[in-house]
Nucleic acid binder design. Structure first.
Length: 329
DNA sequence: GAGCCGTGGGC
DNA sequence: TGCCCAAGGCT
């Protein structure tokens, strides 16, 4: 969960996840849908698929995790970083998990001016040399944790507190007065914009038409309301409605949703319609979800925003909520 | 190596 | 508002 995600965002998911799946065996036995629903809103959904696959692999291996780096590294979703973190923290192996914190601390201590990710091999080398020192090697878990915490607090991204830092006397970045500007990073690519239209279709009993996205790729395995493709060109009302699940309905534009992914920005028009009964042909590969079950679906935040627009319209007169999740409870 | 893959918070 | 970033992995 902590891969590329902040501790504050993770904690409530972590606690709920462990209450649902307290052991590797209960997780391995859980249905995919339930696991994806428990992850919904946290992002990077391949992590959830990998974690589930990892749990099932561990159970196949007898229910015990490998206690060596190569064995850990071979599990789904576990790369160099996570293998080192589990190795050092769970098994006391002399490995350094090199994350963004360690990148920053090593770059500053050694005044590494080569931009990331070019500097990664040198950073790994410096971190390994640190762990090889006697006091570190005697306490790999504490060493890893100390590097995380130093990077997360004193050696922070924007304003390092060098005056409070125990390493300041030996820090080359501080001595040169360039600590705050490190690590340097290669420039980022521009973020393109895409457009789409999605359709909130409900019946007299409040069911909402949903469908499941393909298992892999963007938002893989998550639920959504039906919609058009996401393309560079905006969708006219006419072109969008031609792709609605039912064309013979009174579609009303409910609003727009803006969502920023890592590599593109998405602008969605959301249309709503309600029929007494939804014809079988409109359901297609999708399914009807009772309004009360929406919160149990694997809905990414983007779709929670779209659903909120439709649910708000259905509940005219009820007080408006100021957060999408409030409307889904 | 570089692109793909979410989301929310801080400044 | 817009950009940056966060205990990265997979293809």
């Amino acid at each position: 969960m902590l891969q590329q995600t902040t501790v504050t965002a993770v904690i409530p998911y972590y606690e709920r996840f462990l209450s649902l799946f307290p052991t590797v065996r209960t997780l391995a036995a859980a249905p995919d849908d339930k696991v994806m629903a428990a992850w919904a809103g946290l992002g990077y959904y391949a992590r959830a698929r990998n974690l589930l696959a990892c749990a099932r692999r561990v159970v196949e291996l007898g229910g015990e995790f490998p206690a060596d780096l190569d064995g850990l590294r071979a599990l789904p979703g576990i790369g160099d970083y996570t293998a080192a973190a589990v190795g050092a923290i769970a098994f006391g192996l002399p490995a350094v998990p090199v994350d963004g914190n360690v990148d920053r601390v090593m770059s500053r201590v050694w005044a590494i001016e080569t931009p990331l990710p070019q500097s990664k091999p040198l950073i790994r080398e410096r971190a390994a040399a640190l762990m090889a020192q006697t006091e570190a090697r005697d306490a790999p878990s504490d060493t890893a944790q100390a590097l995380f915490d130093l990077g997360a607090t004193l050696c922070s991204t924007t304003s390092p507190a060098c005056g409070l830092c125990p390493w300041a006397p030996e820090c080359e970045g501080h001595r040169k007065g360039i600590a705050a500007s490190l690590p340097r990073k290669a420039p980022k690519a521009v973020r393109p914009r895409r457009h789409g239209a999605h359709f909130h279709l409900s019946d007299a009993e409040g069911h909402v038409l949903l469908r499941r996205r393909p298992a892999k790729g963007l938002l893989g395995g998550m639920a959504e309301i039906p919609g058009t493709a996401w393309r560079a060109e905006a969708w006219s009302r006419q072109d969008a409605l031609a792709q609605a699940p039912v064309t013979q309905a009174h579609w009303v534009k409910l609003g727009s949703v803006r969502h920023v992914f890592t590599h593109f920005e998405l602008l969605l028009d959301v249309y709503g319609a309600s029929l007494v009964t939804i014809p079988e042909g409109a359901i297609g590969q999708g399914f009807l979800c009772p309004a009360g079950d929406l919160h149990a679906q694997a809905l990414p935040s983007l779709m929670a925003k779209c659903l909120a627009l439709g649910q708000k319209t259905l509940k005219q007169g009820s007080p408006a909520a100021d957060h999408p999740a409030d409307l889904l409870v």
